[in-house]
């Protein structure tokens, strides 16, 4: 194997043979057979206008590989067309069959694209002809830019997404509860207080007198009743249930005694026992 290479090298070195293409040409035909475009290919620079293929168009590339300075055709080991999407980095390699006489014909039918055509987007594919042979120096020719209809995207592994930043997710919160305007609440609060007008008006007429208010048997009971009301207001504003029950139990014990005393006193008064 190695000796073969050395031989090859010797030949290559001796001849310094350079390959070239004879009458390279590309043609684009539509599905009906009408010729849309036919141009010779320049080896010096790629075609300035990209080649555009529609869904059913056929691209034909023909050339003959020859040694420079000789008319004899050569069949190189490697005759590849390389399709390269610069944007996505996708690449496809299509080997071309070359006859012993060096003649080559490649047909790209977009109705039946070959497997070697990479997945495409809207970016054009750079088409390069690569010719390599152990006996000659390699030849790389940029042919033209090829615009083909976008294909299905390349299949992606299901876990691939987790290897990239994922889209942000924001939680949609329920809307804040709306409160009615404060003046309306205030008006209704005043409305709730309106029975007091009636009560105080009627009381003003009857003018109840409170002669026993400060009597030692009545006042403690009124006081404890007031304390109970206070405890409940405190509970509403700040206290926990356990605290209220404790304080209420203590206060209740006191209230039982003060109430019993006050009510028995009133009972005595009403019965007339003095």
């Amino acid at each position: 194997m190695l000796s073969l290479h050395i031989v090859a090298l010797l030949i290559a070195g001796a001849q310094a043979a350079v390959l070239t293409l004879q009458s390279p040409r590309f043609t684009v035909t539509s599905s009906t057979g009408a010729q849309l475009r036919s141009e010779p290919i320049s080896l010096a620079r790629p075609a300035s206008i990209p080649v555009t293929l529609e869904k059913d168009d056929v691209l034909k590339v023909t050339f003959q590989v020859i040694e420079k300075g000789a008319s004899k055709g050569v069949q190189p080991h490697q005759t590849f067309l390389r399709f390269y999407d610069k944007k996505s980095g996708e690449e496809g390699i299509q080997p071309i069959r070359v006859t012993n006489g060096g003649k080559a014909k490649f047909e790209l039918n977009m109705a039946k694209p070959p497997l070697s055509l990479p997945p495409t987007s809207d970016a054009p594919l750079q088409v390069t002809l690569l010719i390599g042979s152990p006996l000659h120096s390699p030849l790389s020719v940029a042919l033209f830019d090829l615009v083909v209809p976008a294909s299905q995207p390349a299949p992606v592994h299901p876990d691939e997404a987790s290897f990239h930043p994922l889209p942000e997710i924001h939680h949609t919160f329920r809307p804040e509860q709306k409160l009615p305007p404060k003046p309306i609440s205030a008006i209704f609060s005043v409305l709730v207080l309106s029975p007091w007008v009636v009560l105080l008006g009627l009381w003003a007429q009857t003018a109840p007198r409170v002669p026993h208010l400060l009597s030692p048997s009545i006042l403690p009971f009124i006081g404890t009743l007031g304390a109970f009301q206070g405890l409940l207001v405190w509970y509403w504003a700040d206290l926990k249930l356990g605290q209220v029950l404790t304080y209420g139990a203590v206060l209740g014990l006191v209230t039982i005694f003060t109430g019993k005393q006050a009510l028995s006193k009133i009972g005595d008064q009403r019965v007339g026992r003095k």
Partner: peptide
Amino acid sequence: SAAWPYYTGAISTSVAFFLFSAVWLASEA
């Protein structure tokens, strides 16, 4: 603020009960 009428209602009932009790206990038979 939406509950102000309820708060005033409860408080005014409590106050009224307390006042009534006080007047009833302290008044003459």
